[in-house]
Design a binder for these strands. Structure first.
Length: 627
RNA sequence: GCCACGGUAGCUCAGCAGGCAGAGCGCGUGCUUGGUAAGCACGAGGUCGCGGGUUCGAUUCCCGCCCGUGGCUCCA
């Protein structure tokens, strides 16, 4: 909305001719008017203006009228201040709003809308007598307020009740549960319900990700967008490949969908409104887009258009989101744990009925355990939370209770008396870190709302259209968060006096070949090439350093196998291997072995996991340092 | 987003009640050719986070901003 304010000795106007959008004018004497000592507000109502804009305009006008000491205000529709006018209907409505808003404080008049008018004005000419204002309601203020309402209203109404489901399938109120022997669960529960922690240190995983040159902050981007160095990219890429393979193996069809979507798309808009989170907004030529926060949109839109029959169910579709974007509040961002751009496996399953949905839920629950184990996280490293509506619990008690059998340890249950999300049932595996903070990894949800919203249906045996249930599944949770968990776990191991390490299949360098002196460099390279050709990630420390120094450096890089080559090794055509997993800081485990045996051991330990080559020069001397 | 604390060499940090900018590690060169967690010497390396203010003079004091960490809030 644009305003031009003139403090005038007098203004006279006369209505000359109607335009197609002209407002009705009652009596003939209304056509010619004169006002003395008035603040004249020439006003253009623009596209996008609403009641809030009018409200703000009223505030501005009041402020100015008081400053110049005007008691009479004339609101005068004046289209020529803007090239982006609102429709006439809105224009009239908001002008009336302004008129009404000013009534208590001033004598207010309003010139009719939609007429060609002749006017005479005598401007006072003092410094404040001519002012122009542009009234813009901050986009976020406007949107957020609306979008927050629906979800927040529901959330306020809904009450949470907390229970522990014990391995004996008893539902115990949290306050009455004895946490002895379940200290990790206790930390998680405290974190969930009390959400209070006092920590004063950089999270260990942040130190590791920087020191090991895996990833780092990128100040030139937005907060929460990381850069990944070759070693970090390798680990991330291996995890991505592994998880994708798992999903495809499970029967999912991998697809790729756009990163951004029309903000005003009717279906998407409703979905957005349910979630009071902040979006990244991108301007297009004509439309505004938001960056996706998950892969739901793309897959649901594909499913909406697809012809699906009961024979195709359960139908699983998968995408690895590189990236999902969520503009989390700045204070919530930490290292790899919470980001604004992250990578997440997102699989959606259509199930024909609740029985099938439950069956899928359980098998994806089990698959999640397997996936976490493969990436180095055992059940003792995380705690299960199940979130459920009361109704759904009552109707499916036996099924819910059976979940506890999978891991055989107590589960935290959050029960809502009403449903305010799109799901009736959800589980998460929550990793508890060295600072006692919890974050969700794997999760599966049973969605009872979006099939309807996106108009997704399948054709049943009888030829009729039916609504499926939709399961949302992230087998591992965000890939970056998995890296965070692995690093935090390594730190906790160190605290217990063990040597920190990564799973062998994720270690950037699996074997470092260290020649005792320059004389054995040629042999060392030969051995390294043999290992490399056998499908092992290997490098050679060819720097002019002492053996002790080279071994120390390899150790601080967490390299699982250090193969030393000297006189003895050349003579017997073997290598002396320091095995990190079986060593402590004080005592190193060394084994004199054939190259082939080392290959066999590594291949064995990495069986079933993807392999990628080392994305760095084999010789350490030819390798830059990224920090 | 709000509150607190921090940002000095590539890294970890010292220093400065306002007056030429410091160490260790790393990097480069040379010596050294080594047997399992730091060999020796020399050298290069600085927008003291960015912008403004106070001052003869600001890395130092004041204000604003950016980035990080923690807390609150939040986490589809």
């Amino acid at each position: 909305m644009k305003l031009l304010l003139i403090h005038a000795d007098f203004i006279e106007y006369e209505l000359k001719k109607k335009t197609p959008v002209a407002e009705d004018v009652g009596k003939e004497e209304e056509k010619k008017k004169r006002f003395d000592e008035a603040l004249v507000v020439f006003t253009s109502v623009e596209k996008g203006d609403d009641e809030r804009t009018a409200e703000k305009a009223v505030e501005d006008i009041k402020e100015i009228a008081e400053k110049v000491g005007a008691e009479r205000v004339l609101v005068y529709p004046y289209a020529h201040l803007s090239s982006n006018l609102a429709e006439a209907k809105t224009g009239i409505k908001l002008l009336k709003e302004i008129e009404r808003g000013l009534k208590d404080s001033f004598e207010v008049h309003r010139a009719p809308f939609g007429w060609y008018k002749a006017f005479n004005i005598s401007c006072k000419g003092h410094p404040l007598s001519e002012l122009s204002r542009e009234i813009v309601v901050a986009e976020e203020e406007k949107e957020e307020e609306k979008e927050f309402t629906e979800a927040l209203k529901a959330e306020e109404k809904a009450k949470s009740y907390w229970y522990i489901l014990t391995p004996n399938k008893e539902l115990v109120e949290v306050e009455k549960f004895d946490f002895k022997g379940h200290e990790n669960l206790e930390k998680f529960v405290k974190y969930e319900i009390a959400k209070k922690r006092a920590v004063d240190r950089i999270p260990p995983h942040v130190e590791y990700m920087q020191r090991l040159q895996l990833a780092d902050y990128e100040p030139a981007s937005d907060s929460g967008h990381m850069r990944y160095y070759p070693k970090g990219r390798l680990i991330k890429s291996l995890l991505e490949t592994y998880i994708t393979d798992k999903c495809v193996e499970y029967g999912a069809m991998e697809v790729e969908t756009p990163l951004m979507y029309d903000r005003n798309h009717p279906t998407l808009r409703k979905y957005l409104e349910r979630f009071p989170a902040r979006q990244y907004i991108i301007g297009g030529d004509k439309r505004e887009f938001f960056l996706r926060f998950a892969a739901c949109f793309g897959q649901f839109l594909i499913k909406h258009d697809a012809i699906i029959t009961y024979k195709d169910l359960p139908l699983k579709m998968y995408e690895l989101t590189r990236y999902s974007f969520r503009k989390e509040q700045r204070g919530e961002l930490v290292g790899l744990r919470r980001l604004r751009a992250f990578t997440m496996p997102d699989m959606h399953t259509l199930a024909k009925d609740m029985d099938e949905a439950k069956q899928e839920f359980l098998s994806q629950y089990k698959l999640s355990v397997e996936v976490l184990r493969d990436i180095g996280l055992e059940p003792e490293d995380y705690e299960t939370a199940v979130r459920i509506t009361k109704d759904f619990y009552e109707e499916n008690k036996e099924f819910i209770h059976s979940l506890v059998e999978v891991l055989g340890k107590p589960i935290l249950i959050e029960m809502w008396d009403s449903r305010f999300f799109y799901f009736v049932l959800k589980f998460e595996f929550n990793f508890v870190d060295s600072l006692d903070k919890a974050s969700a990894l794997s999760t599966v949800q049973i969605d009872v709302e979006n099939a309807e919203r996106y108009d997704i249906s399948y054709i049943d045996v009888d030829g009729g259209k039916k609504r499926p249930y939709i399961l949302h599944c992230s087998l591992s949770g965000a890939v970056e968060r998995c890296m965070y968990a692995i690093l935090e776990k390594a730190y906790m191991r160190k605290e217990r006096g063990e040597l920190p390490s990564l799973p062998l299949w994720l270690s950037p360098t699996q074997v470092r070949v260290v020649p005792v002196s320059e004389k054995y460099l040629e042999k060392a390279i030969e051995i390294a090439e043999e290992l490399r050709d056998a499908g092992v990630r290997v490098d050679v420390d060819d720097r002019d350093e002492t053996l002790g120094k080279k071994v120390r450096d390899a150790s601080t890089e967490w390299i699982p196998f250090i193969a030393v080559v000297g006189e003895k090794e050349v003579a017997e055509n073997k290598i002396t291997v320091t095995i990190r997993k079986e060593s402590t800081l004080k005592k190193q485990k060394k084994e004199f072995m054939e190259v082939g045996d080392l290959v066999k051991r590594i291949k064995g330990e990495c069986k079933g996991k993807p392999f990628k080559q080392l994305p760095l020069p084999m010789l350490l001397s030819a390798r830059p340092s990224f920090r």
